[in-house]
Amino acid sequence: MYQMSRRQLLGSSAVWLLMSSSAGRADLIKGGLPWRPGATDPPDAVTPGGWKYFSPPEAAAVEAFVERLIPSDDLSPGGKDCGCAVYIDRQLAGPYGRFEGYYMFGPFQSGTKQQGPQSPVTPAQQYRKALAALDTACRAKYSGKAFAELADDRKDEVIKGLEDGSLKLDGADSQDFFKLILKDTQTGFLADPIYGGNRDMASWKMIGFPGAHYDYRDWIDRHNQTVTLPPVGINNHPNWSP
C-alpha cells in the first residue's frame, strides 16, 4: 500500500523519471530534489462501527476481555469504551494480522527462546483459534456460558488461568495468546486515537502525555513543572498547535 502511493508520485515530477527503454523500471532521479506538494502518505484513520475481522461472538469475547485488562475506573474509561477491541479488529484485518513484511520462508523449526518466534501462524489466525477455544473452555467450566457472559470475577479467574498457563486452550497456547492480547490491548490504548483504541485520548489524559505536540522549546527550561498543554492527536484536533 505504501509502495503504491509512492509509485503515484512518478510521472508528474520533472526531475523524477521512470527509466524506460534505456534502463528498465528504475526510479531515476537527477537534476534536483523530486518534490510535489501534497504527495504524502497519511495514516488510515479507523472509523468505528461494525467489525472488519471478528465475528460477532469473537467481538463480544474481545470486548469483554479488554474491559477486564483495562477496567473502567476513576482513572479512565475502560478498554471497551476506549475502543481497544475495535483497534485489535482493524489491526487483524490489516498488515499486522497477516505478518505482512515478515520473513515467511520455511522451513519453520523451533529453536531457543533467544532466536525469536518461528511460528507461521499469523496473529489473525491465532485470535481465531484461541477465541473459539476460550469460549469452549468457559462453556465446559462455567455451565455453558461463553467468556463474555461470565461475571467479572469469573472473567478475571479465566484471564489469570491463561496468564499462568493453568487454563489450557484446545489448539492454541494459552500463555502466548494472553501475551498477544495483552500487548495488543495496551498498544491500542496508548497509541494515537486515530487507530481506534484510545478514544478521546483517554490514556494520554490519564498519564499526562500531551501527544503529537511538536514543539516544546518553551518548556525545555521549565524543569519539574506540569505541562499544561491539552493533549492532541495527529488527526487535526482543534487544539493542535506545534
Partner: peptide
C-alpha cells in the same frame, strides 16, 4: 525508495509511535 522531509516525514503525522 526515495525519501524526502516534506513528503515522507511531514509534521502533520510523523509523530506516530504505532
Amino acid at each position: 525508495p526515495w525519501r524526502n522531509t516534506a513528503t515522507d516525514f511531514p509534521i502533520s503525522y510523523m509523530q506516530d509511535e504505532l
